[in-house]
Each structure stands twice: as C-alpha cells, then as structure tokens.
Design a protein around this nucleic acid. Structure first.
Length: 411
RNA sequence: GCGAUCAUAGCUCAGUUGGUUAGAGCGCCGGUUUGUGGUACCGGAGGUCGCGGGUUCGAACCCCGUUGAUCGCCCCA
C-alpha cells in the first residue's frame, strides 16, 4: 500500500466475504421476522438536529456529552449523526402526525455513530436493527416486541442467550428507588470503587451492575425496586411476565438491570449470552446482543403529548459474530471459455441464464488451460465448459437440467 | 479519556544471543503435465520489515518517539 493511500476512519469497518454474508443474513432474517409480526418498515435520516438527541437522551449522559458526532452545517445549525434510532423515530412520529396510526409498529436498520474507543463488537460506525411500538400503553405491546426478539434470535440459530428482565417502575417508583439507592450507597461511600463514588452523583443506578468486587459486596443488600413499585407498576410487570410465559419466551429476573438513558420506565430487558456458552466466548466483554425497554417519558422531552412506547435495538455486528462466518450461495451456472473464439457464445448463455433467474458467472481470463481449475474452486451447481472444436462438457455435483435447459443445452 | 499487547509480500505467518543479496505456504501471472479433470512440476512478479529518530563496525531484532490495529477499563447496543 502506498503511503499516499488515505486510511479508513478509526472505528469504521470494511466488511467483505464471509462476514458480509453473515451481516446480510442477519438483516434478511430480521426483515422476514418483522413482517411476521406486522411491523412496518421505516426509513430514517442518518442525521438530525443536535437537540433531538440532546433533549431526549439527557444533556448529562455520556452519549450526549462526549460520544456524539456533531457538526455545524453551512447555515450554522448544529447537526448530529444519529447515535441511536429511538430519538429520531420519536421526532418523526411527532413531526409527521403519525399519531393517526397509533399504535404504530415500526422497524428499521442501518448505521449509527458514536465517538468511542473501538474494541471487540464496538465500532464508531456500527449497525443496528430496531423495532418500536409507539402509542401503546398496554403490557401486551412489550410482550409482542419481546416475542419477536426471541423468535428472531432463534431463527438466526442463536440459542444460548437468555432474556434478562427487570422493571424500573413508573416515574414515581423509579424516583423513590433511586433516592433509596443513593442513601444506601452514600452511607458506605468511602468503601466503594472510585468509579462508583462518581456514579453515586451522576448515575447511581449503574452501581448495580458494577464489575468491581469492592462494589459487589454491597449489592445483595441494596434496596430493590420491588419495594418501591406502585400497585399499578407491579400489575404492569406481572402482566408482562405472564404474557411472556404464555408466548413461550424464557426469561430470568435481573433486579440489577438498569438503563443508562433517562427516558426509560417500566420494562427494561437485555438478551445476554449464557455464561460459558459459545456466544459468550464469541462476544468478549460486549455481552449484550439485544436490549431495550419502555420509554413512556420520551415524547414529552421532545415537546409532544405524553405517548407510551416500547422498543429494542440489536447490534448487527454482534449478531453476525454469533451467527458465524457464512459462505456465499453457490452459482447456479459457471461457464468456462476454454477457447476465446467462443466468448460471444458464452456471453449469450450468460444473459439467457440470468434472465431466467439463475445466478451465473463467466470465466474467460488468464491462461485458457487453467480456467477450468479456477471454476472448480468456486462454489457451483453446474459448470459448462466451452472447448475448442465446438465441444462442450458439463460437470458439477448437481447437474440441474433446468439450468442447462434455459441455455438450450442438455446432457 | 486510561491501560496492556501487537505491527515483516495481496493474505496467514517464519526469521536463532544484533551478522552477507529477508523466507515459506496460500493467492496472482506465465510455461509444462493431465484431459471429465479441483492434479503435479518449473518459472515470474510482488517487501525502503508501519513511520521518524537514536545506540552500534553492523538493526526486522535493542532504546525513544509517533501512527495504526487488537483486547480491556469508563460508558454502552
């Protein structure tokens, strides 16, 4: 590589080959499954006014304060490459009058951007699939969304992950719990890790999933959300869990599972690899493959009417790692031109095969005697070799007569 | 923002305590062989050893800096 060749931006990826096939498999499976659940496809802008994210995520969150790709456009307006899907979809819901479709079930996928240090399963430009139900206050929406996530993972062939489920309660429950946690941890502040001492002020809920042994000692006796749940919030969570049981979705209660972003209420969930499993090993320290929750408070932060909503997102790269490398589909037909005089004939056959819906590839370069070997090394159903003296020969594991039929050749 | 490890051919990697013109496999190109065959053989192209300094008679190897990658911390999907 020349020194003059510009290098790719840190944290971006050029995906090709087996990895790209795995990526496509994830997206195609998602598209198929979301149709089964009747989620409508939406296409969203990749950038928004900065305030869309700043107001919805909370000014003090790390995402907003240091992880956003923001810039001023030529008119001097601050814009931001989307760090997540939910805020943009909420904005679109409000600005396009999609209230008329509520409850609205939508799905999308595409690139997202966060200015972070790249590591295994984390990139600055990464890709997610996303599903949201907007304008549905009932727990059945949570259940359907989770049933879809569960089916998607199974259809991807990922069986060693489990749904970890928690409730954050309604706004009042959450605030009371949060206050109790601060009281509890403040009493032992000087015994906590440095990180958690900081979290105590900024994000006390996060102490609950600290990895530091100094913090872990205090976690079993920390106040539990259940003690602070209103009757209504309790009933909501019970309806979600019984619905999941009815839908055959396996789950475990995770009392320490919280959300980093301010707008979450009630249900919070993550699909996490089972310890010791192949998926856990494949993902390294980035263990969550699909996560989401209910965000009843979000619409108001964007100036809309109170609107209940629930959604999830999953990193395509992480899912692709669990799916594993995938091979390209075999070509239906490969034509080898072993005599350049027969090139035009081959081109005609190519067009006929492709027009009939068969994938076809032409090999007509390099030493004529080595072209056949080249064809044999590619994954294929039928090879047609055009030889000197107008002879032709076939080979392949699956001498599909329908493929040869469309180019007027038969065994 | 912090830490650890790493950087040699298009790819995967050797390269001894510092010692002549830096190697292999795969891939690519050409030739021979085979001619229902994924073979074998021969040859070729392709490297300022990430970059910049330093130590030394001599550096891919030792030292400093720098850039990049990987993995982890913070945070988070």
């Amino acid at each position: 590589m020349s020194k003059k060749t510009p290098q790719a931006i840190r944290g971006t990826q050029d995906i090709f080959g087996a990895d790209a096939e795995a990526f496509a498999f994830v997206v195609e499976t998602f598209e198929r499954v979301r149709r089964l659940y009747r989620f409508r496809r939406v296409e969203m802008p990749v950038f928004e006014k900065t305030e869309v994210f700043a107001r919805s995520l909370g000014e003090t969150t790390d995402v907003v304060s240091k992880e956003m790709y923001s810039f001023d456009d030529r008119g001097g307006e601050s814009l931001t490459l989307r760090p997540e899907f939910t805020a943009g979809i909420a904005r679109a819901f409000l600005t396009n009058g999609w209230q008329q479709y509520a409850p609205l079930k939508v799905a999308t996928h595409g690139p997202l951007f966060r200015y972070e240090r790249p590591q295994k399963g984390r990139y600055r430009q990464f890709h997610q699939i996303d599903a949201e139900v907007i304008g549905a206050a009932e727990p059945q929406a949570d259940v359907e969304l989770l049933a879809m996530a569960d089916q998607l993972l199974k259809e991807l062939g990922i069986h060693d992950v489990t749904l970890h489920l928690n409730t954050l309660g309604d706004a009042a429950s959450r605030d009371a719990w949060r206050a109790a946690l601060i009281d509890y941890f403040r009493a032992v502040k000087d015994q906590l890790s440095e990180e958690s001492q900081e979290r105590l002020e900024k994000n006390p809920l996060r102490i609950l999933d600290s990895k530091d042994p100094r913090d872990k000692a205090f976690l079993p006796d920390a106040p539990k959300i259940d003690a602070f749940l209103s009757e209504e919030a309790s009933a909501f969570f019970a309806a979600v869990t019984s619905g999941l049981d009815a839908a055959g979705v396996k789950w475990v209660r995770a009392e320490g599972l919280v959300r980093g972003l301010d707008y979450y209420r009630h249900t919070a969930f993550e699909f996490i690899p089972d310890e010791g499993g192949a998926s856990a090993a494949a993902l390294g320290s980035q263990s969550t493959v699909l996560a989401g929750g209910r965000y009843d408070g979000l619409m108001e932060s964007l100036g809309g009417a109170p609107t209940p909503a629930v959604g999830w997102a999953a990193g395509i790269e992480r899912l692709a790692m669990l799916v594993g490398a995938r091979e390209e589909e075999p070509a239906d037909l490969i034509i080898v031109v072993e005599d350049d005089a027969r090139l035009a004939e081959a081109i005609g056959h190519m067009r006929a095969a492709r027009s009939a819906g068969f994938s076809a590839e032409l090999i007509a370069s390099g030493s004529p005697r080595k072209r056949y070997d080249k064809a044999m090394k590619r994954s294929h159903r039928v090879i047609l070799s055009l030889q000197p003296n107008f002879e032709h020969r076939y080979s392949g594991d699956d001498l599909a007569p329908e493929v040869l039929g469309v180019i007027g050749m038969h065994r």
